[in-house]
Amino acid sequence: MHLILFIVFAGLCLTGAINLLLQTHPINSALSLIVVMTSLAVLYLLLGAEFLAAAQVIVYAGAIMVLFTFVVMLLNAGREERTLGSRVARILGFPAVTAILAVMATVILRSEDLGVAGLRDRITTTQDLSAVLFTKLLLPFEVTSVLILIAILGSVALARQGDGKTRVNIGRTAGK
């Protein structure tokens, strides 16, 4: 059962990620990223992280990706031209990616003391998680809320309609 679920959702995950790369329209990429995140939530559940599975669906697939699709629709982003990246990306990037993947795969495959995962494993409940989060790590948790507050203020300040100069600029580009 675990094997079947893993194969199905890992396959969905990889298909979504590859589809993200192949699609030329940003909205299609955003929708395939939602598929990736939802199937990752199922994989978290298989690994016994129930709170994170819920948070993944709510925060990532819900909040963040809605923000992404909203911005794609707001900016009316068109198709991108299909290229293979810049010259630097071709010369340095692709060999570097291959090397990173090779190194990571070698390290992972050679490590011997890794365990197994099954459906009968212990599940980390939300209670276990919050017991640590609200006793040992209370200060980082509260600092995170300050971080979120700063992010809200910063995004409002950045995305607000600017001064008159930018508006004239937009008018000029639209008139071209």
Binding site: F6, C13, L14, V116
Partner: peptide, 23 residues
């Protein structure tokens, strides 16, 4: 229900996803 899979597979999936992200 007793079937188990090695955690290596999860780590490999994670590595491949990361590299797709870099790509």
């Amino acid at each position: 229900l007793q079937q188990e899979i090695p955690l290596t597979w999860y780590l490999l999936l994670s590595a491949v996803l990361f590299c797709l992200g870099v790509l």
